[in-house]
Structure formats: structure tokens, C-alpha cells
């Protein structure tokens, strides 16, 4: 069978930790996305509310994009730390 990675990978003791962390962060982001979709579906007029000089829709859209990057960076730092700690 021709499966398995194309390059040889070392043992990763941090794998379990990273999986749990990924699930938690996935849930956090999914909830913020679900609230965004929910407001648009149930009360779209709320998205026209002006907050800090912008519509809520614009602010929430920027938030989802920036939040994605922030979570990604935090995830990477925590994974790096775990790999350094557990794969010595």
C-alpha cells in the first residue's frame, strides 16, 4: 500500500495536546462565526447598528478576519512550546 507521509516524520509526543488545543480553538472560532451567521439570519437590521463609527456588520467582519489570525498565532505559539517541551 502506498500510504504514509512522503517524508519520514519523527515521533510527535505533543500530538495529543495539539489536538485538544485545536478542538478548543475550533469551538471558540466556530461559536463567533455562528453568532455572526445567526444575527444575519434572525435579525439582520441589527447589523446596521453603528458602533465606533462603523456598522456592526463591518466591525464583525473585520473581527472575524483578525480574530482568525490572532487565534492562529496563539495556537502556533502554544504548539511550538508544547513541541519544545514534550519532544526533547
Amino acid at each position: 500500500m502506498g500510504h504514509g507521509p512522503a517524508v519520514k516524520l519523527g515521533k510527535d509526543n505533543a500530538s495529543g495536546y495539539k489536538t485538544r488545543l485545536g478542538i478548543i480553538m475550533f469551538i471558540v472560532y466556530t461559536l463567533s462565526y455562528a453568532v455572526f451567521v445567526g444575527i444575519n439570519a434572525v435579525k439582520p437590521s441589527l447589523m446596521q447598528t453603528i458602533v465606533a463609527g462603523q456598522t456592526l456588520a463591518v466591525l464583525y467582519g473585520f473581527f472575524l478576519i483578525v480574530f482568525a489570525l490572532v487565534l492562529a498565532v496563539i495556537y502556533n505559539r502554544m504548539c511550538n512550546a508544547a513541541e519544545a517541551r514534550l519532544n526533547r
Binding site: 478542538i23 480553538m25 472560532y29 466556530t30 472575524l64 495556537y75
Partner: peptide, 12 residues
């Protein structure tokens, strides 16, 4: 926004 959010599934 939807396309980008999909990348969080890929990453996590």
C-alpha cells in the same frame, strides 16, 4: 468572510 473562516477548520 465565509471562505476565510473555513481556513480555521483546516488549521485547527
Amino acid at each position: 468572510i465565509g471562505y476565510l473562516a473555513g481556513w480555521m477548520v483546516a488549521l485547527f
